[in-house]
Each structure stands twice: as structure tokens, then as C-alpha cells.
Design a binder for these strands. Sequence first.
DNA 1: GTCCTCACTGCATGCGTTTGCAAAACAGTG
DNA 2: CACTGTTTTGCAAACGCATGCAGTGAGGAC
Lengths: 332, 332
Amino acid sequence: MTTIGKVTSLDVAKRAGVSRSAVSRVFTPGASVSPRTAEKVREAAEALGYRPNVLARAMLTGKSKIIGLVVAYLDNHFYPTVLELLSAALEREGYHVLVFMASHTADDIGDVVSQILDYQVDGLVLASVALSSDLADRCRASGVPVVLFNRKLETEGEFAVVSDNRMGGRLAAEHLIALGRTRIGHIAGWEGASTQRDREAGLMEGLRAAGLGLFAREVGDFRLPRAKDAARRMFDTDQRPDAVLVANDYMAFGVMDVLRAELGLSVPEDVAVIGFDDVPSAAWPAYSLTTIKQDAEAMVSATVNALMSEIGGTEVVSPDPLPVSLIRRHSA
Amino acid sequence: MTTIGKVTSLDVAKRAGVSRSAVSRVFTPGASVSPRTAEKVREAAEALGYRPNVLARAMLTGKSKIIGLVVAYLDNHFYPTVLELLSAALEREGYHVLVFMASHTADDIGDVVSQILDYQVDGLVLASVALSSDLADRCRASGVPVVLFNRKLETEGEFAVVSDNRMGGRLAAEHLIALGRTRIGHIAGWEGASTQRDREAGLMEGLRAAGLGLFAREVGDFRLPRAKDAARRMFDTDQRPDAVLVANDYMAFGVMDVLRAELGLSVPEDVAVIGFDDVPSAAWPAYSLTTIKQDAEAMVSATVNALMSEIGGTEVVSPDPLPVSLIRRHSA
DNA sequence: GTCCTCACTGCATGCGTTTGCAAAACAGTG
DNA sequence: CACTGTTTTGCAAACGCATGCAGTGAGGAC
């Protein structure tokens, strides 16, 4: 019996011969309703096709059951994976994800966040976007829990879920060194990102421990074309590195393309390549990219737990960085 | 002056010495307000950090400014691209995207759609999900414009934006034939999808026009592992095809992996491979996949136009399928 | 100066819910 | 049956905003 137009709790109430409150209670888990009226209401609701209006409920309770996600890159396959995981995990908790694309320019993030807050989101996750500290203040002032995903702020206070990027960089260094490589280069991501800085710091640490220094360095800004340019600059020369750590898998694919298709070098014989993230396509034979794996599931899980706790009123503090691991494939 | 907690239009009104209506009107484009009060209000709002509550406005006006998107696959890079485009385009119109993951099982789509409708979305786009016709009815009954993306329903009536998949299949066939290939196979996607059926129909049409038939056929269901299995079945034999049209790029990558890495065949010498979609990674040299390009921008643009029109009250009818084109690279 | 017009403004109502409070129903006890 | 304790239920008041309607004032025409 599909009814056109809005059917409200009042309609259901009338049909079931009860009050609006009664029908509201039937749809509120844990409210006091007799089985008999519950039955009547459910029946009427079914017949009319009634479902509570989430927005109206949101107004009253202040809980919208929506989580804002702002994300900058979707071309880097790591983030679609995260989105899929995150959305699924939140759905399990009764929440849904409102997506906001942050243009790559960093300064309109303020606008974006404002827009999100207009929707009265119950939580906010900022994936791979830099959050200025006054913006962080604004969020906190609005009382919305925010978690930084894959980025952390130097100033403590914001909840951030990150992998142990430093350890990742170190693992990469150690692996390359164990392979006998000595001229090790680094193609960096955007230098404003903590993620980048930590990965590079770990790399340097590992090199230093073996008495080595960085052989070459270029910046790829986490963007594919820039990464390819960086690779050209770094490798189209006589004195080239025999190994390179690229700041993420996505850029690493571009680097490998340049190496093999443009410069005729072979990986790993001429140059060993290590990426970071372990996106699904890193396992594809065409690249078979050795990489430092970030555990996306664990990261998402930490994110969701934090959100749920904070929404529940529990103050929560950033956990230790999540463990990473070296995935050995054929590129190094 | 960051104020903690909610600041409502009443707060602003008080501070500006006007009524709530006035501040409401200031934030409603096209309402009648004198420049002087507008100024006062804007100032007060600024000072208090006031922004209208979208949800409250939604209740009153019935327009939530949110569009629901249900999407099944995010591992196929075509859809992240679409999401990014769609979100950006809708943001330009003042809308935002609420994402719902449809598990791959087809039957819980009903639940998902119900949940979406609970949020009073202004529109609904179903990307790559099959919509049963009674579900379509429910959507229409709720008065929410829905557009099917990259799928169409045999029964007219739903707005669907699709490429000219049939033509695409035909172009692929013609190209392979022009290349002198005669033993042409097809690795199909999920057979319940109109997209699949149309692509295959086009392929058959093209073959028939050249007096050929399909040399081999397997089903890959739009999933990577299935596609690889399909490739193994099709090619691990003496009598193998010398060309194959794979129903989308994502599967084509898997097929190429099997061909080259597992079976030691070379592409295109031993087997020519054509994909469908032209996802960004199809251009990567490691695959250099010849493919039939779907114009994602045009598809998104058509989607947004349709939504905006329908929301504006204009009944709108499905356009012709959008043009596709053959992108020649090295895999065929 | 009077009257009319018109641009503004405030009041009050309503959007579809939830929820504290108090009345009502019910069950149990002596 | 009277009385108490426990559910269950309805009333009414929010939540934050938009908007029709009536009213205020200013400006123009005569």
C-alpha cells in the first residue's frame, strides 16, 4: 500500500488509534511500550509505509547520524579503499558518510569544513588533508569530534590515526640496504604532510644506521604527474640511484612507468623501487611492487572506535601509530 | 569570537537588535531585507560564528540539499572517478553526497534505499546497482528523483544515464577485425547488467557483420578474481582466441595479468585485449590498454542536470546513450 | 497636508520528531 | 475492596528555522 507523499507519525498514530508519542516510542529502542500497542503501531506503520524522518529526529536529539568525510584524492587507490571500509563500518553502527571533496588547494578547507558543520554532522574525518590549527579550534568549538586520518598535527590535542610511518621508512631503508643497494634516493610526497615527514625521517634514520646518506631526493607532492617528473629528474642522468623509496604506491607506479617505459631501465635490476600503502594494485604482476603496508582496516577501525567513543561522550586520546609491515614483491 | 555550543538565529537576532525573521531573510537569497539590517545581521552572525542549520531548514522546506549515492564497487577505478566528479559537480550546485555501499548481494538494495530515503534526500543516484522494478516504484512513490547510472532498466520510466554500450561493443569488434583477428573471445561482466548485455550485443553485431561468430566466452561478473579465472579457462588451452573483449578495464587488467604473468603470452602479439571504460590507469604504460572510452564527465554532467531539473519540478526523460570512442593503445 | 504605494519588518505558525511529566491503567497485596 | 507500586500512555513543549500575513514607516504624487 504505497502512499504518495509524506506519511508522518501522526498518520500512523491515528490509524493505530494511539498517540504520536506511542509510535515514536515504538521506533525508539528501549522505550516503554506495551507489546500490544507496539504490535498495532508496527502494523499501521507497515501498511502506510511509515519510517521515522531522520532529519526531524536529528533536530530534536542533536544527533544526525551522519559523519562528514573530507577527502582530497580519490585517484590514489588507497582512499577509495578507505572510503569503502569506512562507509561499511559506519553503516554497521547506524551512521552514514557525507562526502566532501577538498580541492587540492589547501586554503578552501575552511569553507569545506564550515559547510560540513552546517549539516550538523556527528563527527568529522579528515582524510589526507592538512588542518590549520585555527580550523581545528573551530571544529572543537562546534563540539564535533574530528579525527585526522593518515595525517597528524604537530600540536597535540587532535585525535589522529596514523601508521607508524617512521618505522615504515626505516623498514624500507633496511630492506634496500640488505639488498646491497647503496645509492638510495627518495621521491617525496607533499612536504606539508606529517606522513611524508615521518616516512622520510624513518628512511634517513635507517640510512644513517648503515652509515649511508640520501643519494638523491625529489618531490612528487603525492600527485602522479609530479612524481613522474621527479623520477625523470632523478634518473635521467649518469649518476643515478640504484634504489628509491617513493612516498606512496600511487606515485611509485608512475615512477616505475618512467623507469621502464621511458628510460628503459629495469626494476629491480637497475633500480629497486619501494612504495608505501600496499594498495590492491601493488600486488598486480605488472608492477608487483614491494611496499610498506598500511593496515587500512585497522586504521578505519581505530577511526570508527574513536568517533563512537567521542560521540558517546568519552574523551579519547590518540593511540600509538599502527604497525606497518614490509611486503616483499619483485620491485625490490 | 568562537562561541561554544549551538548559536541559533535567535542569538544573532538579539545581538543585531532585529527579529529572527530578519536574520533568516538575510540568509535566504532573494528575500526582502534592507541593506542596513542585512549589514547588522551579517556582522552579528560573523561575530557569533552563526551559520544556518541545514537540517532545520530542510525540515521546513522539505529540501535537504543532499543527494544519496548508492554504489557497489569502489575497487573498479571507474567509480571513484565518478564519485569525485559527481561530488564536485553537486557541490557546485549546493548539494552534497551521502554515500551508501551496496553489498554485492543484490537483495539488500531494498534496505539500503529505505535507509537513504530516511534521510529525506532530494535525489538518488544508483551507480552500477540493479534496481528491481518494485523498488523503482517505491522510490517514485516517495517522490524522490532517481537516476540510474551506468545501468538501465528494460522497463522504461526510470531515468538512466548510460553510454552507447552497444556501439562500444561494435567499435571493439570492428577494431579487432581490422587488426586481422579472427578468433575473438569475450569475457563478460555480470549478466544481469544492461551494460553487459549491450556491450556484448554490440560485439556480436560487429562480428556478425564480418561473418564471424564468438570464438569463446566466459563470465567474469565484473569482479577481479572471477575475471582472472575466466581468463585461465579461456586461454589455458591449445585452441585459444587471438583477441578478447573484456567487459571493463578493471577486469581487463586482471586478464592481462593472467595472460602475461601466468601463461607467458604476449599482448598484443599472441592476444589482443580491449577493455571498456578508459579508467585512468588504462593509460599507464604497464598496461597501455586499448579500450572503449566512456565519457565519465558527460555522464556525471547528464546525471546532475537531470537531478536538478527534476528537483526543480521539470519532468525529464532519459537522453540518448552518450557517445563512446575507441582509444587505441598498445594492447590491441 | 493627505493619501497611496511599496519596501521592510515582526508575529505567529508549522515542519516531524522526542521526551519530561503527570494522569491512567494495571497488577499485586493485605 | 482499598491501597500501593509499577508500567504504559498522552499532553505539550521543545528543536532551529522559513514564510504568509499584517503592520510600520518612508517616500512620492497630488
